[in-house]
Amino acid sequence: MKDKHKTSFASKIYVMLILLFLYFPIIYTVVFSFNETRSLSVFEGFSFKWYQKMLKDSSMVNAIFYTILVAVIATAVSTVAGTITAIGLSGSRRILRKIINEVNNLPILNPDIVTGIGLLMFFSAIAIKKGLMTLLLAHIMFCIPFVILSIMPKIRTLDPNLADAALDLGATPIQALTKVIVPQIMPGIISGALIAFTMSFDDFVISYFVTGNGVNNISIVVYTMSKRINPSINALSTVIIIIITVVLLIANILPIIKEKRRKTK
């Protein structure tokens, strides 16, 4: 941490090796999903065979459908609910804020398996059949705390008199919210939605415990099929890798483009 000396060659190599370690399995999965044979060690030619197999496998197609459906609904619901709660929290008493934060920390800090079995027993206690409904409720439950966490810092930077000013100037409470507060905290809401989407899209452990009735997401299908080597899993994996990468790229690039446009104006 001396001056601004250049990063040494050895350091560069070291970081490259760590990155190689992190990325190699991902690249490996993508490459071998296009392999012509079943082999997972020798690449014997390019083909879409495993993608065709994947599309013919109804459990895989259903899993893709449910994963996207659940992620979209859970993101929408948890973003709206999280925004409402975060705005409400900023106006409430400190003790209440503390309690809600502690409660929200439970699903964040608990091992997923604990959250999963808790929900499993809860759904069974109130006799909701395991399936799409339980999966959605569970995903909304673990997404909201992350949405609140990413919105709260934005709200804290708001002028506390902003809402009152809008109300004094004749805005209805709803208008004050949608026209004044929400636009101000939009970046927080968007990053909250993004976190919610990836959390829901990637979840395995909690989904595994609360779902049933043939409703499976991609992770569960990979887990249950992984007992035998099946290159279609690589195709399925590649689909999720691509979806998440595209979502992330859009999320990271859009603000940069916006910034550039603003500057050129």
């Binding site: 409402i84 705005i87 409400g88 809600i100």
Partner: peptide, 9 residues
């Protein structure tokens, strides 16, 4: 004024 928005959560 928005304090009550927290009750559902």
């Amino acid at each position: 004024s928005f304090r009550s928005m927290i009750y559902p959560y």
